[in-house]
């Protein structure tokens, strides 16, 4: 096991401080906590599994429509990123974190090249044919729960994905 389990000490207080801050800053903000935490055990080892990446850092192809950064309710739409994309053809649209490092090296938030290396090394069985970019500034997460999440899950299941790695912006 690499790493150690994070103790809960102080997390509740910091969570509540964050809630107070974002509630004050964004009129559309709604608190959402998963009522049930789901858990799927690996059906096969990683070296035999199909892996997809999903980033909420606003990553998308330069030829795709950028995320809508002006809507105070956010933009919960999905951008598909084919596995054979040239990283130079990717960019980031997001106003709520400093995107400088991601613009310089997209693997800082969307490690597709990195995953390809791990696949070549044999750690990852195969990569999904399509990976996904979201723009995580969605103050009211209800559309993520009702639309974006189920749509993504269906696409991943259709692609035969066993494992998804999620990366925030």
């Amino acid at each position: 096991m690499i790493g150690q389990r994070l103790a809960d000490d102080g997390l509740r207080e910091r969570w509540e401080r964050w809630l107070a801050l974002v509630t004050e800053m964004h009129a559309e903000f709604q608190v959402h906590q998963n009522p049930t935490i789901h858990f799927t055990r690996m059906a096969k080892p990683l070296k035999a599994s199909r892996v997809a990446l999903l980033s909420t850092g606003g990553v998308h192809r330069k030829t795709d429509r950028p995320f809508d950064l002006a809507d105070p309710a956010g933009d919960p739409s999905i951008r598909s990123i084919p596995v054979d994309v040239d990283p130079a053809d990717l960019t980031v649209s997001h106003m709520h974190y400093d995107t400088d490092m991601a613009q310089r090296d997209i693997d800082c938030i969307f490690p597709l090249r990195t995953a390809q290396v791990l696949h070549n090394e044999g750690m990852i069985g195969e990569l999904a044919s399509v990976h996904y970019g979201l723009m995580g500034f969605v103050p009211n997460g209800q559309r993520l729960i009702d639309e974006t999440g189920p749509e993504l899950a269906a696409r991943l299941v259709d692609d035969g994905v066993d494992v998804a790695v999620l990366v925030p912006g």
Binding site: N34, H38, T40, A43, L54, F137, L152, L156, V163
Partner: peptide, 21 residues
Amino acid sequence: MCHKSVGLVQNIVERAGIATV
């Protein structure tokens, strides 16, 4: 906010039978 969005989507993907981290 990105972390909240990750968490909501992650749990739905996990529910669909895909192991997530």
